[in-house]
Write a protein that binds this DNA or RNA. Structure first.
Length: 305
DNA sequence: AGCATTCCTCACAA
DNA sequence: ATTGTGAGGAATG
């Protein structure tokens, strides 16, 4: 692992007080990272691999073909997160989530990778989404020299993949929309750049025109892939949380009304509130996000780290 | 009153 | 732990 023989390079350390990498990687926004048995995290950003090892006061960072700055950019380190937090409404629920989620960052992910990953997500638990997307990488991505980790496959790669092979990756009904979207984007490389010039609402509408993409997946892409911090993805967990804590379990309140409330209440940085709340609520429900992203011994052995 | 339209909810399959 | 569709009913005008 250490030394230049393996190709991994040390990129120094990152202060725990600055960023909580573990929380940021396990609060539901990315499937590109996994935890190893020694407690370190391994993941791919673009064409680079990173390993983040928690220590007492900080994290040790190593990389293959990456840079310290690229990793800091991925953790959106130039955003003033305290300011973002101050722009959120002050309510008791959010106050608790803020305490529990200190150090959480919205990662600056690739929009295609976010879109394709969340197209794999319907009715799947997080560990399985992680496995499926890693299988897509292994089959159709490009290996990162010096490791057995792979980049996320480009739209063209998935567009031309045999349908049966996609289905064999345990994609089920998700294969159809994933491949259809891959083909559309392979033909339209300007798709994401175009969204950059549009309002969040317009961009959301265009995303929702893609097969298999509804409000939830569109909001995930907007928030995690396009840096639209006003997007507030509502999955089953968030709906339960909002219903319970902001609507006193009132059964007659529709999902639509809950979404309207969330947009109005949490405001232009609601996406950050969503991550804080999601992390806090799932933890209170007994979920262990880090464990959900742990590699099996077999998977870890296959990586040959 | 009858009719068209819109909106909402639910259930179900993929 | 999402989306797309279609049926059925209430509200709207």
């Amino acid at each position: 692992m250490s030394g230049s023989a393996s190709g991994w390079q040390s990129l120094g350390r990152i202060s725990r007080a600055e960023i909580d990498c573990e929380r940021s990687l396990s609060c539901g926004q990315t499937f590109s990272w996994a935890r190893l048995h020694d407690g370190s995290w391994i993941g791919v950003v673009g064409t680079a691999a990173y390993r983040i090892t928690p220590e007492k006061e900080d994290y040790a960072i190593e990389s293959l073909r990456g840079s310290r700055q690229a990793l800091l950019d991925y953790f959106a380190s130039s955003v003033d997160w305290t300011r973002v937090a101050h722009a959120l409404p002050s309510d008791p629920v959010l106050a608790s989530a803020w305490v529990a989620g200190q150090g959480i960052r919205i990662l600056a992910q690739d929009p295609w990778e976010a879109l394709a990953s969340f197209l794999c997500s319907p009715v799947k638990p997080i560990p399985e989404i992680r496995r499926i997307t890693w299988m897509l990488r292994a089959e159709w991505g490009r290996p990162i020299a010096g490791s057995r980790l792979c980049t996320f496959p480009a739209p063209e790669a998935l567009a031309s993949a045999p349908g049966e092979a996609l289905l064999a990756r345990r994609l089920g009904f998700r294969a159809r929309s994933l491949q259809a979207v891959a083909r559309l984007l392979a033909e339209d490389p300007d798709f994401f750049p175009r969204l950059g010039t549009q309002s969040t609402g317009e961009a959301r509408a265009h995303l929702c025109e893609l097969p298999g993409v509804g409000r939830k997946i569109a909001d995930c892409v907007l928030l995690f892939g396009l840096g639209r911090y006003d997007a507030f993805p509502i999955d089953i967990w968030m709906e339960r949380l909002l219903r319970k804590l902001y609507f006193a379990h009132r059964k007659e309140v529709s999902a639509r009304r809950i979404a309207e409330f969330a947009a109005a209440h949490f405001g232009p940085y609601g996406g950050y509130a969503q991550q804080l709340l999601y992390f806090w609520y799932r933890r209170s429900a007994g979920r262990n996000p880090a464990r959900e992203l742990a590699l099996s011994p077999e998977e870890e052995a296959q990586l040959g780290l």
